[in-house]
Design a protein around this nucleic acid. Structure first.
Lengths: 197, 197
DNA sequence: CGGGTAGTTGACCGGTCAGTCAAGGGGTGG
DNA sequence: CCACCCCTTGACTGACCGGTCAACTACCCG
């Protein structure tokens, strides 16, 4: 078993520390993919940031694309946690979760760096079908949860997709136009309010 | 017929023909950036697709990034034309224009390839600030037109941004989940209908 | 103790990347 | 006729790309 069994108080700080190599790589990649982009980060950069040698990297990941999948899974797990934590906020739970995640990114990086899924989707879904499918899966599960919430609160099914699209669109606009995360929250709340009215 | 206006016989079919070299390069780039991505297309690919030698390319464009700007301008001009052509559709004009453009992409490429602006924005706005600003400008002008329409039809100002975000989000989702362009149209119309109700 | 295995290392690979350059063609104006 | 300039050409550069490999270490297990 890797890592000291039950020890390791799940590093909440999201910063590179003394964790196991594989995790250090994934976290460094998560950071670099966000602040730059998939293609703009080389394996060498990754290794330097994670303080790992190249051969070691390829011990854990058969390819750069597989690392991307691991990064997606990391973000998906984090987002899922946030969404569950905000469950009792009703339809606004998703707004709270997005605010939480994007707010933290803004704090860490000083600007909006985009949605971890949307970024990779936009850049890679035309060139790497496996990766595309992987992201599509995350979105599908996300939409499912939203759909369940819609039904619980007596809102049309199509609203789920509408909210998901709004989230992606707002984050993208905030990124390219360099707006604060608060604007994403506001815009999203406006939409949800309008739809539940 | 996309090309339309203009004195000289420009290739109406959006395919590479006998146009001037510079235009051939930009059109080839527009196509390749859409079907792959910015980083996934090399100058060599570009030149092959446009039947131009590398030295010639650098006669017209100081760098790859400058080519990207030209590509953005090409798409912006085309979209502007579509938007103007659909002016009398009221708030739905933007839905018509997006449908027109995305429908043509779907026809040409057999799938949703994303928004020309959104794609480049997502991939490059963290690494190339000039390019980021260029795309931001396109979005800003686009939002302005939407805002004017909102006021004309007595709809809250914030709706402009909401629609723009919805467009970007719907296109991104359609791309990653491989849905037909018709779904983008439908989703967009749903939002507009809800907002004008 | 001996052997297997998980992890690590740095040198190395061919290919591709964006970008450069000196040379030359071809039309136009003097 | 020549000179000028826009455009074209293809060979070239050095850096960097993702990925490979054989050798080595450290630790667990029998």
């Amino acid at each position: 078993m890797v890592g000291g069994a039950g020890g390791e108080g799940e590093g909440d700080d999201w910063e590179v520390g003394m964790e196991q190599t594989r995790e250090r790589i994934v976290r460094a990649a998560a950071k670099l993919f966000l602040t730059r982009s998939y293609h703009a980060v080389g394996i060498a950069d990754l290794c330097a940031a994670a303080d790992v040698r190249k051969g070691s990297f390829y011990h854990f990941f058969p390819s750069k694309a597989d690392l991307a999948k691991a990064v997606i899974d990391l973000h998906a797990a984090e987002f899922d946690k946030q969404l569950t934590a905000a469950q009792d906020e009703g339809l606004y739970a998703v707004a709270v979760a997005v605010t939480q995640v994007q707010g933290r990114f803004e704090e860490r990086f000083g600007r909006i760096v985009g949605c971890p899924f949307g970024n990779l989707a936009a850049e890679l879904s035309t060139t790497d079908d496996e990766l595309r499918a992987h992201v599509a899966d995350v979105f599908a599960r996300w939409e499912q949860r939203l759909l369940a919430a819609c039904r619980r609160y007596d809102v049309p099914d199509e609203t789920a997709r509408m909210i998901l699209a709004q989230i992606q669109g707002l984050i993208l606009l905030a990124k390219v136009q360099q707006r604060p995360a608060a604007e994403i929250t506001a815009g999203l709340r406006t939409l949800i309010a309008g739809v539940t009215a």
